[in-house]
């Protein structure tokens, strides 16, 4: 039998985490319980973060949004602030899992699982999200891009938990594009995804570009080369083909049961061509 702690506030959480061996934190359980079942993970004890008010909710802070790690995907999707200010994240969330999974799974879980296929990660990379890590005695911040160190690996210390993620959207981006390729149209693990933020001038010139790909590398892939290839250009087929070719060079996908590396590489580039649809009329 595993002990499972259900702290109702941070103080109870810190006490639970002081136990030996430390219980493994989880929240929605949508990944953890699958791994417990398969034997991929088998901790002696668990601590569930779903009841800690300090870890939940969305608020405006420092000109951006602070999102509690224990906030479910469904709550985020319903949140007017998220919808208005983070449409890129909202789009990605709407493709994540299925409605019951979104009612359970949380953004903190998606980040800490650190799967290259985590659907919230490409938009959070493109948005330069920053994580807030807390322990009983400390609090620190770190860019998400640095927090995730490898597939399933993060910079989280054993006494720490992810408290929240802070995103400061740049309101000048006027193209918010997310596309995910899954085998089916819902409840599908990402084969490849692209999150793109563009600032396109009224004359059609790309003034700024942020691109991030999911499922095509050990962690989310960003490509300055591909972004660079767009700057000062228009959303034409040739320009996007050029960026696509750079993207295909930047990614390092693997073969798995869902798709081959070659397919992932190909579509990593192809997904950029969809940006043509955002050409100003």
């Amino acid at each position: 039998m595993k002990e499972v702690f259900l702290p109702g506030n941070l103080e109870e959480l810190w006490r639970a985490l002081e136990r030996e061996p430390a219980p493994r934190p989880y929240c929605g359980g949508t990944d953890l319980l699958v791994h417990l079942r398969s034997g991929k993970t088998d901790p002696d004890a668990l601590v569930c973060l779903e009841r800690i008010p300090e870890l939940s909710g969305v608020r405006e802070e420092e000109g951006g949004l602070w999102i509690g790690a224990a906030t479910t995907h469904a709550r985020l999707l319903d949140d007017p602030l998220v919808r208005a200010r983070l449409p890129l994240l909202a789009r990605a969330l709407s493709t994540l899992g299925s409605p019951p999974v979104r009612n359970m799974g949380t953004i903190g879980g998606n980040i800490c699982t650190a799967s290259p296929a985590g659907d919230t990660l490409p938009p959070l990379y493109a948005l330069d999200g920053e994580v807030e890590l807390r322990s009983r005695d400390s609090s620190r911040r770190m860019p998400l891009r640095r927090f995730i160190t490898g597939p399933g690996e993060t910079a989280l210390r054993p006494d720490e938990i992810l408290a929240g993620v802070r995103v400061t959207p740049d309101g000048t981006y006027n193209v918010h594009h997310f596309e995910k390729i899954g085998i089916r149209r819902a409840m599908a693990c990402s084969i490849a995804s692209l999150a793109a933020l563009l600032r396109v001038s009224s004359s059609g010139e790309i003034e700024a570009a942020r691109l991030a790909w999911g499922s095509v590398g050990p962690t989310v892939v960003v490509s300055g080369e591909a972004e660079q290839a767009l700057l000062g250009k228009r959303l034409t087929r040739d320009v996007l083909e050029d960026a696509a070719e750079r993207a295909r060079k930047a990614v390092s996908p693997i073969d798995d049961v869902r798709a081959s590396a070659a397919y992932r590489r190909e579509v990593s580039g192809n997904l950029l061509l969809r940006l043509m649809e955002h050409r100003p009329l």
Partner: peptide
Amino acid sequence: AERVLEALRRKGTPGAGETS
């Protein structure tokens, strides 16, 4: 999708009808 894309590639479909 993977098999279809591969077949499209082999056939050399130029992609969307739109051009720059």
